[in-house]
Amino acid sequence: MNEIGIEKVRHLLAKSNLEAALVHSNVNKKYFGALSGSGVYLLISHDHAWLILDGRYEGEAIETTSGFQIKVVSKGSYITGLVSPLREQGLIHLAIESSALTISEYDELKMHPLNISLWENELAEIRSIKLPCEIDKIKAACALTDEVFTEILPKIHVGMKEYELSALITYLCLNKGASNMAFDSIITSGNRTAYPHGRPTGKVMQSGEFVMIDFGVTLDDYQSDMTRTIVLGSATSEMKKIYETVLAAQLTGIASINIDKTGQEVDAAARRVIEQAGYGEYFSHGLGHGIGRGGDFPILNPRSNMILTNNMVMSCEPGIYVPNLGGVRIEDDVALLDSVGTPLNKSTKNLLVIEG
């Protein structure tokens, strides 16, 4: 059991005049030390923490978790199973994750005498402040990402397919200890680098093209997310200008990651650099997102009023994407430590031009 995390939930319950919280998303269950899996529900009250699960998970729960009261129910009777301890404890004020239950489960809950409150971002906000051990795990994931990036550079060449590079990255990450990729890698080349979330295809890389490499790993349940953009052959003056503009924006963004800043303010600082260079219309997404187990806060974009504080970890990833030319994105994971942003990725951000 993640006792610190559970206590944060209990503090939030008290602050909100609620008595219990139902957790079902895998990322949050794992954060609190419970099992993932569709047949596992975590119920937290001020005095208890129950795992409501079917028999498929009982042995694993006994073996791998601690601190929870385990309640085994028949498959499909989870709502009835979790309402039972609520009734026994006389609890009626229940918070649920609004995006983690099905409509039918919600309807079934409403059939019971419960006052239900919907939580949207509350648990992600709890997870946004990282413990030192969590930051260490993110650092390790970033180090693995850096290692793989260094290893692939001499293998990239004209005539290589995007699919090939993506497969090589995946192989190396898993071979070096990652449990899986943090997300589907974004590997694009040439005009396709103008697609911010382009997935690899059979396109063959050509001389004079950008190659965008955006990948991350999951290591010990924590993720990394890094983007580097390189050039094959030689770069035109415009390609160099775009790259230098994105790098300047990224460094400005990192320098702006300070305590008490809002996500909106950090985004604006980096975006201003791109706008002043004449490429404002080609920066089509927010500056960054939280880094951790997935779906983390804070968010850095033009609408974010989230206030940054120490021990948050976020990406800083400005980009310029010009149709029919290509695009550049440079991304680091940045920890807010001792009131300032500290990049966790060590891979060079100098423009790399690979011959042949």
Score class of each variant (00 low, 15 high):
K176I: 01
S224T: 01
A194E: 08
G288E: 10
G263I: 02
Q264C: 05
I274E: 06
S234T: 15
I257Y: 00
R272N: 07
Q264R: 07
G208H: 12
G202L: 08
V204H: 11
A248W: 07
V266Q: 01
Q250M: 09
T218M: 14
T201Y: 03
T193I: 01
E209S: 01
Y279T: 03
Q264F: 07
E265L: 01
R199H: 10
Y243F: 05
M205Y: 03
E238N: 10
G286M: 00
L172T: 02
S179R: 15
K176T: 08
T227C: 12
G216K: 00
D214W: 04
P196I: 11
G292Y: 05
V231D: 08
G190R: 06
S256N: 08
D221L: 08
L247T: 00
G295S: 04
L251R: 13
E244P: 02
P196E: 13
G294I: 00
N191I: 14
T252G: 06
P196W: 12
I254V: 11
Q250E: 13
L251T: 07
I230C: 00
A249V: 00
F283W: 10
R272I: 09
K176F: 04
N258Q: 15
E244W: 09
S234N: 14
D225Q: 03
A277H: 07
S207V: 09
G280D: 09
A255Y: 08
Q206Y: 10
T262A: 00
M181L: 15
S284H: 13
A270Y: 06
E244V: 00
P200S: 01
G253R: 01
V211F: 01
L232T: 07
I213D: 03
E209N: 01
G286R: 11
H285R: 13
I259L: 11
R293P: 07
A268Y: 09
G292S: 03
R192L: 14
I230Q: 08
L287Y: 05
S237E: 15
D225S: 04
I187M: 08
D225F: 02
T193N: 07
T236A: 03
N180V: 15
K203E: 12
L174T: 10
G295H: 13
M239S: 06
Y243M: 00
S207G: 05
D296M: 01
G286Q: 01
G190E: 11
G208P: 11
T201Q: 09
G295D: 08
A268N: 09
G190P: 07
D184N: 14
E265W: 14
A194N: 06
G190D: 11
V217L: 12
M226G: 05
R228F: 04
L287I: 00
D296C: 02
I257W: 03
S234M: 14
R293A: 02
N180K: 15
G295I: 00
P200H: 02
G253W: 04
A235I: 01
T227E: 11
L219C: 05
F183N: 12
R228G: 01
G202M: 14
T229M: 04
V231G: 04
K261P: 10
N175P: 04
M239D: 06
